[in-house]
Design a protein around this nucleic acid. Sequence first.
DNA 1: CAGAGAGAGTTGCTTCAAGCAACTAATCTC
DNA 2: GAGATTAGTTGCTTGAAGCAACTCTCTCTG
Lengths: 160, 160
Amino acid sequence: MLGNDYKQQNCSIARALELVGERWTILVLRDIFLGVRRFDDLQRNLGVARNVLAARLERLVGEGILEKVPYQERPLRHEYLLSDKGLDLWPVVVELLQWGDRYAAPSAGPPILLRHKGCGGVLGERRICSDCAQPLSVRDVRAEPGPGASARQASLARHR
Amino acid sequence: MLGNDYKQQNCSIARALELVGERWTILVLRDIFLGVRRFDDLQRNLGVARNVLAARLERLVGEGILEKVPYQERPLRHEYLLSDKGLDLWPVVVELLQWGDRYAAPSAGPPILLRHKGCGGVLGERRICSDCAQPLSVRDVRAEPGPGASARQASLARHR
DNA sequence: CAGAGAGAGTTGCTTCAAGCAACTAATCTC
DNA sequence: GAGATTAGTTGCTTGAAGCAACTCTCTCTG
């Protein structure tokens, strides 16, 4: 992706993408989830231009998604860690991973597996109804305007 | 986001983002999930440039994520529907939505709610272990090289 | 049957973000 | 004090997105 600024849209997805929808951002977060935390490591691992990486990191820190913490003085060096807000992006990354595994994995199979540290099982896939606890797929769900919907959105939804 | 082409990366996330990581793509899919299916409606609703929208739709159809089906003859007109491959992107969209609701929702509350058609409950959030069925968060999971990992990835993982 | 209008794009130009390479700066090692 | 390490910054080029105007096909209205 490119820019932020899907202006005038009253939508949480658009707002989320303003923050993490720029090119490289999700891949930077993936690397940090996987334990790559320093500028040069990120740069080498991703192959992203250094100026772009610097811009992304600065943005993510500014938004409170990453935290820049020193790992040594003299010379002062920092690494980038995920804040809670950043950790909460984990499901987004995982869903992309699982979709990619299914539809765009190399023929040899998925390059990364996510295993339950406790029992060694692999991560499954399910969304669940908060009331009846049934797993829900696209077909089971209806979108309706929420408390923050604009009048226009609400009326659009009614006519559908 | 911008371009496709996170070359040389052996990673399902990068591969997924090559397909759906361009600017506007996810928002196009969101609109189609929500029932907006025609060129002009998408264009108006998103505020995206028409040439860009045309390029995205063509790409998505080419990748088998969308299908272009006629909804009338004379004049021949098409609408864009999600294929199974496209429907499987639903969890990605949902996770972005939920993250956006939590961290970037308008003060009035989320603009969209997803409700279980069956029971009227709202969509919860949980990832689950396929073996022991426990819900898993970031901390419960370890990434390890999968069958398709490159030698370099496998050795990187071992040194972590 | 002429003119307006809807729907779905296409074309050409401008602007702005990403790619690339080279440079800076602080410190440690030999 | 020469070279390596880490983390950027600067300046220029390339390429994608924004914008407006145009096209084309058909339908509808007077």
